[in-house]
Simulated scan of single mutants.
Amino acid sequence: MHKLEKSVNNITRAILNDYEGTRTIDEVKTFDHPDNEDIINIIESLRRIVFPGYFRNKSYRVYTVRNNISMILEDVIFKLIRQISIVLRYDEKYVMLNDDEINDNAERITFEFLDKLPKIREYIETDVQAAYDGDPAAFNKDEIIYSYPGLYAILVNRLAHELFLLGVPLIPRVMTEHAHSKTGIDIHPGATIGKNFFIDHGTGIVIGETTQIGDNVKVYQGVTLGALSTRGGQSLRNKKRHPTIEDNVTIYSGASILGGETVVGKNAVIGGNAFITRSVPAGAKVSIKNQELRYNFDSPIEQVEKADLDPEENWFYII
């Protein structure tokens, strides 16, 4: 036997022996696994339905868009029923059902979800408008729809959130983690987000599962809406761990707002890099104290003068 072949056989036997343990990673599931590629295709198909004039199949002419929607929808229905029927067995209440019963439930959930698409489109329209109104760098709304990572992350979250509310295991998280990988924006599908939500720049944003966000909220890059501590592990499941952000709040870059009892009141402004673990009253402006800067130069320079800054100025909100 050739030396290389012998080495491969030895390694194969060692790995197969290692599979015989009782660890989680040793478990061989008795049912199919969800297909990430199919789930991503579902997202892109739903994106075409939400924006029918923007992300259509280029093999079709413009005047057939309405007919194409029904074709896209049929494909989504087929794939979504299949994927939901697979993941339902992760839920204890479906484990004992036979294949026909699982399929019936998957079909019911799929159509309940698709009935939510007009509502999702209503909310996304407000998100596009919020991005346009809130970003002077936006050339037009087409630029936002085609290119803004914040809008993509919000869209995927709104789709995933409806599946999350319908009790679908795993798929909502696969969807939002796909958006996370594309945009750097991590929104748990359990997070509740109101209308007119604007994410500017976006990279590094984290929004936890039990976060509640009202209407007309604007969030910049690097913001964390998180939990105070996860040391309790699974004992914290289904408990409110993340903050509530009320209407008309602006949160600037690098701010961290933590804790399930933390409420940021209406019309509040949270300055960059603020670290907040208790509630903020409505209308408040929160900022960190100006830090002392030290300058080291190789050659003499003019004295740096100290200037008093007007607290009403926007200097501590610069993005």
Rank of each mutant, 00 (worst) to 15 (best):
I199K: 01
R294G: 04
H161D: 00
A282H: 06
I193Y: 04
N103R: 14
G254A: 15
T250M: 11
I213E: 00
K119S: 13
K79T: 05
T64K: 13
L73T: 11
E305N: 12
Q234V: 03
I84Q: 08
A282T: 09
V223I: 00
D298K: 14
E177R: 14
A179Q: 02
R158N: 14
E261F: 07
G21R: 13
F198I: 04
A153D: 00
E177V: 02
G204I: 00
N314M: 07
V264P: 03
V87N: 09
I270P: 00
I213A: 00
R294T: 12
F275I: 11
F275K: 11
E44D: 14
G53M: 08
V28H: 06
V76N: 08
R241H: 06
A268T: 01
I171G: 03
G272Q: 15
Y54N: 15
N17D: 10
R294Q: 13
G232M: 12
N17P: 00
V269N: 10
A138Q: 12
Y220I: 07
L166P: 02
T126Y: 12
G21E: 12
R237E: 15
N290Y: 09
F111T: 05
G184C: 09
P169Q: 01
L16V: 04
R278Y: 01
G214P: 02
I42V: 08
F275C: 08
D100W: 10
T210V: 09
N314C: 07
R61Y: 14
E107H: 03
E292H: 14
F316T: 10
K218Q: 07
I124Y: 02
I171S: 04
I77P: 01
N196Y: 05
T64F: 12
S256P: 01
D18V: 05
N17I: 09
R89W: 07
G232Y: 08
H188Y: 08
T183H: 03
H188F: 07
V8G: 05
V263H: 04
I81S: 00
V128H: 08
I187H: 00
V128C: 02
D18L: 12
Y148N: 06
S70I: 12
E92R: 12
R66M: 13
Q221R: 03
R158I: 04
G53V: 10
E37S: 14
I15N: 06
K240C: 08
N57Y: 11
G134R: 13
T230V: 13
D18P: 06
D38V: 15
V269K: 15
